[in-house]
Structure formats: structure tokens, C-alpha cells
């Protein structure tokens, strides 16, 4: 009781303190410094209509590389923590007929939609991470509906590594051509797609990088799901 009261009082003090700190910030007023530059130059500098993905992939591509690394480390960490010589699915109940049929019908559509999200990262909201998460959801559906389902491990783990290496390779080609890491060579040097901004074949290397990230995130999260749904078999 006293513990809970103390916790509530502490939280109230912290909340009041944060509210005091934020009270000085004017709400709804224009306070863009760097943001204005992004908004004004995003089209001719990156070819992307979606300013968020342009910032995430082009202007601050290094952060995205870091995020991809974080996800990779998370996946590897889960794999290392839950490592057993022999592992098996622990599910005992098969889903009902409605569920299995529905899942097998839905699966291609969910994957298709995930691919749509990450391919159109430079045009619509989304990008590699939501698209990849959607694809992983499709595999989670399969895992939930079928007792014996397993992702093809050999293919998935290799694809994951290759996609990650592809991202770095695109960055390194930029280093070779333009002089710095993650330089958008397709847009800046080749000028490819500069006449059709706002269509699918534009946006420099954003769609390419997002396709790689989407594949990587999708396979990675599926791998985490696979690791977590299995238990070691002692024999």
C-alpha cells in the first residue's frame, strides 16, 4: 500500500516536472529549423514524395543502418538465448478448419500487401520496416494456424544476411561514386527517374534500399517468432 502510494506520488512529481518543461513550448506554431530545408529540397534532392522516407533513407541513412543493425542483433540475441540442439514446436492444437483455410487463403495477400508497402516507400506512408513487419505477420499467421509449420530456415537466414549486405553494398557503391557513404548514386549521378517524380520508378535508391530492408526485417522477425515458438526437446 505504502509502496503503491509512493510510486503514484513519484510519478505525479515526474509528470508535473515534464509538463512544466513542455509548458514553455508554443503549441501549433512554426518552429521548423532543419525541417523547412527538408520540405523545400526533398523533391529535387532525393526524388521522393514522401519526405519521411527521404529523411530516413537519404539525409539520415546512417540511423537506418543502425536500426537495421539493432534488429539484426535482437534476432541474433534471441537465437543465442534460446539455443538448443534439438527444437520442436510446442503447439498441440491444430487450428480449426475455418482458421487454417482462412490463413492459407490470406497468406499470399498479406505478403503481397507487405511487398506493396515497402516497394512504395517513397510514395506512400510506410517503408521497409512496416512492410517487413507485415510480411512477418503473414508468417506468424501460418505459425498460429498450423501445428507443424516451419519457415525454410536455410533460405530465410541466407536471405536475411544477403539483404543486410545489400544495404551496405549500396552504401559502399555510393562511397565509390560520390565520395561518402550512402551517397544516392542512382539519383545524383545517373539522374535516373528524374522526369517522373511521384511515380513508381523514381526516388533514387529509396525503393531499392527499402526493398532490401523489407526483406531483411520480414525474414528477421519471422526468425524471432520461430525461435520463440519452439522449445528444446530433451532426449
Amino acid at each position: 500500500m505504502i509502496k503503491r502510494a509512493l510510486a503514484i506520488i513519484t510519478l505525479l512529481i515526474i509528470g508535473y516536472w515534464l509538463a512544466q518543461g513542455l509548458a514553455g513550448v508554443p503549441f501549433g506554431q512554426d518552429k521548423m529549423l532543419v525541417g523547412r530545408y527538408y520540405l523545400e529540397h526533398v523533391k529535387e534532392q532525393t526524388g521522393a514524395v514522401n519526405a519521411v522516407t527521404a529523411v530516413v533513407v537519404n539525409y539520415r541513412g546512417f540511423d537506418t543502418l543502425g536500426e537495421v543493425t539493432v534488429l539484426f542483433i535482437a534476432s541474433t540475441g534471441v537465437g543465442a538465448l534460446l539455443w538448443r540442439k534439438k527444437k520442436k514446436r510446442t503447439a498441440r492444437t491444430e487450428g480449426s478448419v475455418v482458421l487454417t483455410t482462412g490463413t492459407s487463403l490470406l497468406f499470399p495477400f498479406v505478403v503481397l500487401f507487405g511487398a506493396y508497402i515497402f516497394i512504395h516507400g517513397h510514395l506512400t506512408p510506410g517503408g521497409g520496416f512496416p512492410g517487413g513487419a507485415t510480411i512477418a505477420t503473414a508468417f506468424l499467421l501460418l505459425y498460429m494456424a498450423f501445428v507443424t509449420y516451419e519457415i525454410p530456415h536455410k533460405v530465410f537466414e541466407k536471405t536475411e544476411g544477403l539483404a543486410g549486405m545489400g544495404y551496405v553494398a549500396v552504401g559502399l557503391i555510393g562511397l565509390a561514386i560520390g565520395g561518402y557513404f550512402l551517397f544516392d548514386w542512382i539519383w545524383q549521378t545517373w539522374g535516373w527517374g528524374q522526369s517522373n517524380i511521384g511515380r513508381l520508378f523514381s526516388g533514387g535508391f529509396i525503393p531499392i534500399i527499402y526493398t532490401l530492408i523489407g526483406i531483411k526485417v520480414g525474414t528477421e522477425l519471422s526468425g524471432i517468432i520461430d525461435n520463440m515458438l519452439k522449445e528444446g526437446v530433451s532426449e
Binding site: G95, S96, V98, L99, G102, L106
Partner: peptide, 8 residues
């Protein structure tokens, strides 16, 4: 999808 989730 809604009927399937309700069924499950």
C-alpha cells in the same frame, strides 16, 4: 477476416 477472427 473479421468472421475468421471472431470464430477463432
Amino acid at each position: 477476416t473479421n468472421p475468421i477472427s471472431a470464430h477463432a
